[in-house]
Nucleic acid binder design. Structure first.
Lengths: 229, 229
DNA sequence: CGGCATAGTGTCCGGAGCACACCCGAGTCA
DNA sequence: TGACTCGGGTGTGCTCCGGACACTATGCCG
């Protein structure tokens, strides 16, 4: 089967920058390429868009196929389309930006036997194509967005301690925060549900667990409330 | 000439949302379509991307061709790619967001005789394709961005009064601002050069003119300064 | 020269942000 | 069993910023 057009057309792909949080380290999901070009190199998960699926659906599908992950947050990041970004010809890629709860998902082996793995975002191998640019753009977006939208919670398990939450912000923003001020501020927003549970299996005083109240956030948001760390 | 591929490919276009400021009204540039589909309807300026030009170059080229405008600010907005957004088939469009100094540019007749005109963003005719969505997205972006990046100046003439600047923010943000607080804040940033000139041809006390100091802004920006209205 | 239209200017108050240090509770180990 | 260790958890005071607020100045016009 082949397809013929009057004018030349580019290929269209989606690529996903998937972030996960592992204790004090921010991770990104990479896939080892099994085919040329850049065979053997690590790259962002992604692939070609089918002509009858939306861009976002394509991103979800590719991510599921290559890693088994279903992100808690997914949004369009940026479209990269420099003429020479792919040696095979003109390939436009719509990059997506995703957050997953690393704790909840084991990586499934990719269907096509390529390897998927988590890397620290501060220490990735050399990436295929312009994926380093894409990763960088995604990091900037995460840094900017985490402060005025409560998307950070998508990186944590459903029940978390305030210290975990603070660490998350410290890792993403790359700076230390004052414990008391952080707690004061985040609790004042009244978006966290205080649970009657504490951490388990720690060799010191156990911390109280909290849960993010999505419903309340949506209500407040409608009423004009602005999340801001 | 025709082009044949092993897999089907989408068409790729760029569309530009160009904003201009006309006194107290925010305007958007629209083009009347001369061909099907949506012949006669108003639409955003845009067109097909050539395979050897970057996306941004395509946006600039189309804008120049269809209106003669060269925007002072141009950035990628979002990529729209729903499968059914164009009746001709799968067409992905990368939308750009541009600001021009309305005062400085006369609209040139479009090369292909279609008409170009400015419309109030609050009162546009029914638009072709999903261009209403795109316009909406651009408006949100403008609203959000104008507060933490000094891009608003691209809408004003090079020399402007503080009242003009304030009006700009009021129009974009859709709320009134306090004159004294506004002046205090904007002048405290030390980004405006106070000129030894005043408005001309006004039938009341003439206001002093200012100029935005791009060089100083870049310096401060490097030093970690954050513009914030 | 009086009227009008816009320019231009300073103070006060309350709330938010930030810096800062000590006791608590649970487990561990000698 | 008691002392130690390790993070958990808490309140105050100061400063600075943001927001409310109203009058005088200047230039044109009739």
């Amino acid at each position: 089967m082949s397809y013929t057009y009057e004018y030349p057309r580019p290929s269209l792909t989606v690529d996903c920058v998937v972030f996960g949080l592992d204790d004090d380290d921010l991770k990104v999901l990479l896939i080892q390429r099994g085919v040329e070009p850049f065979e053997g190199r690590w790259a962002l998960p992604g692939g070609f868009v089918k002509l009858d699926e939306s861009l976002e659906a394509a991103a979800r599908r590719e991510l599921e196929e290559e890693s088994g992950l279903r992100p808690g947050h997914l949004e369009q990041l940026f479209t990269f389309g420099e003429p020479d970004r792919d040696p095979r010809g003109r390939v436009i890629t719509v990059a997506y930006f995703a957050l997953v709860k690393l704790s909840a998902h084991a990586l499934r082996a990719a269907t096509d036997a390529r390897e998927a793995a988590w890397f620290s975002v501060w220490d990735t191998p050399k990436l295929a194509f312009d994926h380093a640019d894409i990763l960088n753009t995604a990091l900037q977006r995460l840094k900017g967005k985490v402060r005025y939208q409560p998307i950070g919670f998508e990186l944590l398990p459903p029940k978390f301690t305030l210290t975990q939450l603070q660490r998350l912000y410290e890792v993403v923003l790359e700076r230390e925060l004052d414990k008391r001020n952080f707690r004061k501020k985040i609790l004042a927003m009244d978006l966290l549900e205080e649970l009657d549970e504490v951490e388990q299996d720690v060799s010191h005083r156990a911390a109280r667990l909290y849960r993010f109240d999505h419903k309340k956030y949506r209500q407040l948001e409608k009423a004009g409330f602005n999340f801001e760390l």
